[in-house]
């Protein structure tokens, strides 16, 4: 564990807390893309199938936290605050993302096993999971401050992971091409959002 990775994970946690706080405080999930949240839940569930494998207490607790909160957010959006969710704003076609990521995972993976292909699928899917949310923002043209904070925390998390990989490459000789390429694309998507947002 290094400084970049720990801070990145904490930013990731923070982004989820910000989102939960926004929904609970305003009792509304307006401006939040259910499709993006659904994709994140799929990402966590398919990536953490190795949950029984022990790496560290930190690792296990974080995995449980991410799976639990992502499903809880779906519950809040689809059941508890259902009335505040406007599906007509959330029109991105995620079928294509899911299909393309699955196909890529079947072709480009480290080993052709059930767990490994789904792990790879989750890496590819995470890279593009924010697209429905960005699409929604571009359609409505305006984001609540809190939604911007959410996206900022998520973007910071991704950016810090890039620094973590550079750090690990030099200190541990660590390499993970699949994660690097997907992560670079993911970070680029956020940078694009920040650039547009900053200019406004």
């Amino acid at each position: 564990m290094n400084f970049f990775r720990l801070t990145a994970d904490l930013m990731h946690l923070m982004s989820i807390f910000v989102l939960l706080l926004k929904i609970q405080k305003t009792r509304s999930c307006s401006g939040i893309s259910f499709k993006t949240q659904l994709l994140y839940a799929v990402v966590f569930v398919t990536r953490y199938l190795d949950l029984p494998k022990w790496i560290s207490l930190y690792n296990t607790l974080m995995k449980i936290f991410f799976i639990a909160t992502s499903i809880y957010i779906l519950y809040l959006m689809k059941v508890k605050f259902r009335a505040t969710y406007d599906p007509s704003q959330d029109t991105f076609r995620i079928e294509f993302l899911l299909g393309a990521c699955l196909l890529l995972a079947l072709v480009f993976n480290y080993s052709f096993s059930f767990i490994e292909v789904l792990w790879t699928f989750s890496i590819y899917l995470e890279a593009v999971a924010i697209l429905p949310q960005l699409f929604m923002l571009s359609r409505t043209g305006e984001a609540e401050t809190i939604t911007t904070h959410y996206l900022f925390a998520l973007g910071a998390y991704r950016g810090l992971y890039l620094l973590n990989w550079i750090w690990r490459f030099y200190t541990e000789n660590y390499a993970d091409l699949i994660v690097w390429i997907a992560g670079a694309i993911q970070t680029a998507l956020y940078s694009d959002f920040f650039y547009i947002y900053y200019k406004k």
């Binding site: 990775r5 790496i55 991410f66 480290y110 660590y174 390499a175 091409l177």
Partner: peptide, 10 residues
């Protein structure tokens, strides 16, 4: 691609 020994990142 390069195969990491195991997936230890989140």
């Amino acid at each position: 691609p390069t195969k990491p020994s195991f997936h230890d990142e989140l």
